[in-house]
Design a protein around this nucleic acid. Sequence first.
DNA 1: GTCTATAGGCTGATAGAC
DNA 2: GTCTATCAGCCTATAGAC
Lengths: 202, 202
Amino acid sequence: MARTAGSTGADTVERLREAALELFAREGYAAVSMRAIAARTGVQAGAIYNYFPTKQDILFDLLVGHMEALATAWREMERLSTAEIRLADFVRFHVRYHLVRPREMFISYMELRSLEEDNFRRIREFRRGYEAIPRQMIEQGMAKGAFDVLDAEVTTRAIIALLNGLTTWYREDGRLSLGEIETVYIGLVSRMVGAREEEGNV
Amino acid sequence: MARTAGSTGADTVERLREAALELFAREGYAAVSMRAIAARTGVQAGAIYNYFPTKQDILFDLLVGHMEALATAWREMERLSTAEIRLADFVRFHVRYHLVRPREMFISYMELRSLEEDNFRRIREFRRGYEAIPRQMIEQGMAKGAFDVLDAEVTTRAIIALLNGLTTWYREDGRLSLGEIETVYIGLVSRMVGAREEEGNV
DNA sequence: GTCTATAGGCTGATAGAC
DNA sequence: GTCTATCAGCCTATAGAC
């Protein structure tokens, strides 16, 4: 389903994805018409249907693509890492990965409700898998006595909300660099989990 | 503009607000039709225009109403308080106020982009005023040496994101009571600002 | 104040020429 | 693979009867 490219105009599908991503992020899925996506791509509306059977499939394709790329990047990070991977590494990874993909980040938590039931369930499973990473880190840190947390579930959700909140205010030309934002966020998360030594143990 | 009720069927406008609030929160503004709002209210679509000149005005009315009620509730809290009001009080107020109004909370941060420019600016001003409350508390806490914060702006935004994230997971029939969630959140925020004494100084 | 009816326009999706 | 043309339906908003 979707991702079935044509033969000669093979980059049209990529330009359609880019146009849809931009418009969905800016206007919201329901407010964007197939004609608008086509116009931004430089084709007629009918041409879209060579690549995507429905408008819903475009959204689903974008969200699946984002979640798969995110999971792949995390596994690659794990593979390349020599030391043990800690919560601070997850925070750094998450911030770094999403700050250069603000539109993907935005639609993948704003447009979940625009998904039809089956599609929604599949994306939700992806998300659960990803969010299990910090959750397990927190639970293991608690078990080891390295973290001091009042409620693991709420703390995990609070951290995820804090990280995702980046989308609502981050601007590329803002006061702080990506690295500075990472540092502040790692410090905040470190405190939230009550890490025994503020920098070293997270 | 809006809020101009009729004469005899005076509660129709309130039922329209309730229907629109429910539908906007569940489906998103752009995905909801005037017919759907009317059907949920038990009137015909044309009848809506006795109360709201456009669909946009319904959304704006809901958002203004929410922000005004929020500001009033905060002032009332200040008025009734005998001791000095601290950051913990803000967190408790915010959580308590919003957890019983999840739909208002949800649309007032999800549907900002559905507002036309002038309306958007007015709501944004409301929000800025409200978010200035924790921001000033943090800055004053830093100045007094009661808080230890790496970056006041980012920390403020992170706290607001964390608080607003409640909408995405809170369920009335969840594991934790409202009071327990308040306690966990106050503890988290307390740690984020590096309060000198974990409970006492926030 | 609410109804029915409708104007005028946009929607997602399809058919068939090239 | 893209186009033009079009279907059938839904949209916001308005007009006029009651």
